[in-house]
């Protein structure tokens, strides 16, 4: 028994050093540091990727910049940490990053058991399948016996198993670590099917040489509400994250864009717009920020729709329609609570 003490203690030591940073007061920490630490993916077209200048770009990245702008007044004061599906939660739980914005599905166990707080839904997604057209498959129900490439450490892994069990079909999983590896294996025919969130499939397909040779099957087998998240235990920080996201959505609803935000703040007659942009009331102070936090954030990255169209929309290579992600006034699900 005595021998076991050392490994146990060492394990405890590693865990302890990594956990000790997880304390309340994230806002103060961030302000003191002068930068926001934000976990993103290791590279997923449209969501988070580095452009030719080495600068992080994307829909998830924009959200990080918006938070940095709201908290620090500088959209570039962000340290990005690329994380895999497997490392992301440890990075957040250990306090290595302040916020996680990495197409992460909001589920009960992540919320309650992993002790995270989800800040809202930035993208309504669902799991889909991509196959080569040459396979001649038109429906996921024809995939019995196929080899499936799947990113480990994600909800897709569990959905996939549930779906094939429910349909009474069998499959061979090929577990891979990152989206890049998944694409490589899929293109080399090490697997017949690549499965992940439909948005991720579209993003991957956009980077293929012959995007038209691949189809995304019509079946969407799960609900994947993706959103940013923070650790349990710091409600102020969670409120900041939640309301930056909501502010971006409200801005779209109210027609506030990066270009006209200043003008709207000065001239708008709409009381909610004035409150949102800090032209009236002391709204920002309630979460420890300047009253114009939303204005600064919107000026930095634009409203929700602008960010979407810039990185994911039909004008981009990723080519995703707004669909469920249109604001509620236009038949979508994006519905932010009122700013009052």
């Amino acid at each position: 028994m005595k021998k076991m003490i050392l490994p146990v203690a060492l394990g405890a030591a590693f865990a302890a050093t990594s956990l000790s940073a997880a304390t309340a007061g994230t806002l103060e920490d961030v302000q003191e540091r002068g930068t926001l630490r934000c976990a993103v993916s290791t590279g997923l077209a449209g969501f988070s990727y580095t452009d030719e200048n080495g600068k992080w770009q994307g829909f998830d990245v924009d959200y990080c910049r918006a938070v940095a702008a709201a908290v620090l007044g500088d959209a570039d004061a962000v340290e990005f940490s690329p994380t895999t599906g497997k490392t992301r939660f440890t990075a957040l739980a250990s306090g290595e990053v302040d916020i996680l914005s990495r197409n992460t599905t909001w589920t009960y166990s992540r919320d309650a058991d992993l002790k995270f707080t989800f800040l809202g839904v930035s993208y309504y997604d669902g799991q889909g399948f991509m196959v080569k057209k040459s396979l001649g498959v038109t429906s996921a129900k024809e995939l019995d016996g196929a080899t499936v490439c799947i990113q480990t450490g994600t909800t897709t892994e569990l959905n996939l198993s549930d779906y094939f069990t429910a349909e009474g079909m069998s499959y061979e999983p090929l577990s891979i670590e990152t989206n890049t590896e998944g694409r490589a294996n899929y293109l080399a025919d090490a697997c017949d099917v690549y499965t992940t969130d439909a948005s991720g499939l579209a993003a991957s397909r956009a980077t293929f040489e012959n995007a038209a040779d691949h189809i995304i099957l019509p079946e969407i087998i799960s609900k994947e509400p993706l959103g940013p998240l923070v650790r349990h235990g710091d409600d102020q920080w969670a409120d900041i994250g939640r309301w930056v996201l909501n502010a971006m959505k409200i801005a779209e609803e109210k027609g506030i864009t990066a270009a006209n935000a200043d003008e709207m703040a000065a001239t708008s007659k709409d009381p909610e717009v004035k409150r949102l942009l800090g032209a009236s009331g002391e709204m920002g102070a309630a979460i420890g920020l300047n009253n114009d936090f939303a204005l600064v954030a919107i000026k930095a990255v634009g409203n929700y729709g602008e960010s979407f169209e810039r990185h994911l929309g039909t004008q981009t290579k990723v080519n995703l329609a707004r669909g469920l992600n249109a604001v509620w006034t236009e038949g979508g699900l994006q519905y932010a609570p009122p700013f009052r």
């Binding site: 405890a12 030591a13 865990a15 302890a16 956990l19 000790s20 997880a22 739980a93 002790k115 235990g233």
Partner: peptide
């Protein structure tokens, strides 16, 4: 330290 931090996280 490990016990304390796990408790602080509610785990």
């Amino acid at each position: 330290n490990a016990v304390e931090n796990l408790e602080a996280l509610g785990k």
